[in-house]
Amino acid sequence: RSVMTEEYKVPDGMVGFIIGRGGEQISRIQQESGCKIQIAPDSGGLPERSCMLTGTPESVQSAKRLLDQIVE
């Protein structure tokens, strides 16, 4: 099973929602998708923050879907 890492951008203002209280939302996304998510510590003043998604292609797709649901 191939593991890939893909960069994915999320709106900087939504990072708090994505991480959730005490990190529980991001933990849930990682468990549900099976994908490891690393969010950049800051956006460098840009409107979007970079996330690194690491996992199988299916888990990366799944994580993107879950992130999109939060961001919308």
Rank of each mutant, 00 (worst) to 15 (best):
Q69F: 06
Y8K: 04
G16K: 11
K9Y: 07
F17Y: 12
G20V: 02
Q69T: 11
I18Y: 03
T5M: 13
E72H: 13
R65G: 11
E58Y: 09
G13W: 10
M14C: 13
R65S: 11
R1M: 07
I37Q: 00
V3I: 15
D12S: 10
R1D: 15
S59F: 01
I26F: 06
G13H: 09
G44T: 14
Q38T: 11
L46M: 11
I26A: 04
I18D: 03
Q31V: 04
G23D: 09
D42S: 12
Q38A: 12
C51R: 00
M14H: 04
K64H: 04
L67S: 01
C51G: 01
S62Q: 12
P11E: 08
I18A: 03
R1G: 05
E7H: 15
Q31G: 06
E32F: 03
P57A: 12
G20Q: 03
S62M: 06
R49T: 08
V3A: 08
I18C: 04
T56G: 06
E7R: 15
T5S: 13
E72W: 13
E48A: 10
Q69Y: 03
L67F: 04
P41K: 10
R49V: 05
C35I: 02
L46T: 13
P41Y: 03
G55W: 00
C51W: 05
E48G: 10
R28N: 05
R28Y: 04
A63D: 01
G16H: 08
K64Q: 05
M4F: 14
M52H: 11
L46C: 11
K36S: 10
C35F: 00
I39Y: 03
Q31Y: 06
M52F: 13
I19H: 08
I37K: 00
G23S: 08
S59H: 08
Q61P: 01
P11W: 03
L67K: 01
T56W: 03
R49K: 07
E48R: 08
M52S: 14
G13A: 13
K9W: 07
V71G: 08
E58I: 08
E72A: 15
V15S: 08
S27P: 03
V15E: 05
V60H: 01
G45I: 04
L53Y: 00
S59M: 06
M4C: 14
S50I: 15
G45L: 05
R21L: 15
E24F: 13
C51D: 00
E72D: 09
V71K: 11
Y8R: 02
I37R: 00
K36M: 09
V71E: 06
E72I: 10
V3F: 07
T5C: 07
T54A: 07
S2R: 14
P47L: 12
M14F: 12
G44E: 14
P47F: 07
E6D: 05
C35K: 00
F17H: 14
G13D: 14
P47A: 13
G13N: 12
T5D: 04
E24H: 15
S62G: 13
L67N: 01
D12C: 09
I18N: 02
P41D: 14
V10E: 01
P57N: 14
S33K: 01
G23F: 03
G45F: 08
D12W: 03
R65W: 07
C35D: 00
Q25D: 07
T56Q: 10
D12K: 08
I29W: 02
V71L: 09
E7D: 02
V15I: 07
L53F: 02
I19Y: 08
I26M: 07
I37W: 00
M14V: 13
I19N: 10
L67T: 01
G44A: 13
M4Y: 13
I26G: 02
M4H: 07
L53Q: 00
Q31K: 14
M52Y: 13
I39K: 01
L66F: 06
I19A: 11
